[in-house]
Lab assay of single mutants.
Amino acid sequence: MAEQVALSRTQVCGILREELFQGDAFHQSDTHIFIIMGASGDLAKKKIYPTIWWLFRDGLLPENTFIVGYARSRLTVADIRKQSEPFFKATPEEKLKLEDFFARNSYVAGQYDDAASYQRLNSHMNALHLGSQANRLFYLALPPTVYEAVTKNIHESCMSQIGWNRIIVEKPFGRDLQSSDRLSNHISSLFREDQIYRIDHYLGKEMVQNLMVLRFANRIFGPIWNRDNIACVILTFKEPFGTEGRGGYFDEFGIIRDVMQNHLLQMLCLVAMEKPASTNSDDVRDEKVKVLKCISEVQANNVVLGQYVGNPDGEGEATKGYLDDPTVPRGSTTATFAAVVLYVENERWDGVPFILRCGKALNERKAEVRLQFHDVAGDIFHQQCKRNELVIRVQPNEAVYTKMMTKKPGMFFNPEESELDLTYGNRYKNVKLPDAYERLILDVFCGSQMHFVRSDELREAWRIFTPLLHQIELEKPKPIPYIYGSRGPTEADELMKRVGFQYEGTYKWVNP
Rank of each mutant, 00 (worst) to 15 (best):
R215W: 05
I168P: 06
F216Y: 05
V169R: 01
G23L: 12
S106R: 12
L177E: 08
R136S: 06
M125E: 00
F173E: 04
A71D: 01
L128D: 05
D181N: 13
S106K: 09
F34I: 13
E99T: 10
H124M: 10
A103K: 15
S184I: 13
I168Y: 01
S106G: 07
A149M: 11
N153F: 11
R198D: 03
W164K: 07
L211T: 06
F101S: 02
P172V: 00
M212T: 08
N105V: 11
A25H: 15
G14I: 07
R192P: 14
A134N: 15
S84A: 13
K45S: 11
G163H: 06
A134E: 15
G14H: 13
S106M: 09
A141Y: 03
N126A: 14
G204N: 01
H129V: 14
C158M: 10
N210H: 03
R72L: 00
G41S: 00
P223L: 06
F102M: 09
F87D: 06
G110W: 01
S8W: 04
L60R: 08
G23V: 15
K82A: 13
P143V: 11
E99P: 05
I255W: 02
G174A: 04
W54L: 11
G174C: 01
N226E: 07
K238I: 01
I52T: 06
A103P: 04
F221G: 00
F237I: 12
V150W: 03
S123H: 13
F26M: 13
E18H: 11
L142M: 05
R136P: 01
A149P: 12
K47V: 01
L140P: 04
G163W: 04
R136Y: 14
V213R: 02
F66L: 10
D194S: 14
T76R: 13
G69F: 02
R246H: 02
Q195A: 10
I52W: 01
Y249F: 04
A134R: 14
R198M: 06
N105M: 12
K47Y: 11
K46W: 03
P144S: 07
I196M: 07
R9L: 08
N126E: 04
D100T: 13
L235T: 05
D251V: 01
T91K: 12
Y49E: 03
L203E: 00
Q22G: 09
R81E: 07
Y49G: 02
Y197A: 02
E63C: 07
A149K: 13
L96M: 12
S132W: 13
H186E: 13
R166N: 05
D114T: 14
A103T: 12
Q195L: 07
P62Q: 06
E206S: 06
G69I: 03
L75A: 13
R104S: 06
Q83L: 10
I196Y: 01
V233N: 02
G110F: 03
H129F: 13
K89N: 15
Y139T: 06
D58I: 09
R104T: 05
A71H: 02
A90W: 12
D228A: 10
L130Q: 15
D200P: 01
W54S: 07
D194C: 10
E63F: 12
V150H: 03
K89G: 13
V233R: 01
A6E: 15
D181E: 13
T91V: 15
Y112T: 05
S8K: 15
Y107P: 02
V213K: 05
D79T: 10
S29Y: 15
F250V: 00
N122W: 09
C13S: 12
G163V: 05
Q133R: 15
V108H: 10
N210P: 01
T151S: 13
F88R: 01
A115W: 11
E99M: 09
I33C: 10
A90F: 09
E170R: 02
E18F: 06
H201M: 02
G204S: 05
Y139V: 05
L142C: 04
R175D: 08
V169E: 00
K152W: 10
I220W: 13
A44S: 07
T243R: 00
T76A: 10
L121A: 05
K47S: 01
R9V: 14
P143T: 04
F66Q: 12
L121V: 08
M207S: 01
G38D: 01
F173D: 03
F216I: 06
K95D: 10
G23T: 15
R219L: 07
F216W: 07
A217Y: 05
L130P: 13
I256L: 13
E18Q: 15
F34G: 01
N105H: 13
A231V: 07
V146D: 02
I67K: 04
Y202F: 08
L137N: 05
A231H: 07
F21T: 13
E252W: 07
S117D: 15
S132I: 10
F101C: 00
N126F: 08
L140F: 11
A134L: 09
E244T: 11
V68W: 02
L177M: 14
V12G: 07
T145W: 02
G69P: 04
H186Q: 13
L130V: 15
C158W: 04
G245I: 01
D251R: 01
G163K: 08
E252S: 11
D30E: 15
G204T: 00
L121I: 10
A78I: 09
S179V: 02
D181V: 06
S180A: 06
F88C: 10
G41N: 03
F216G: 00
D113C: 13
S84P: 03
I234N: 13
R81L: 11
G23I: 15
E148V: 11
D100P: 02
Q11K: 11
P223T: 11
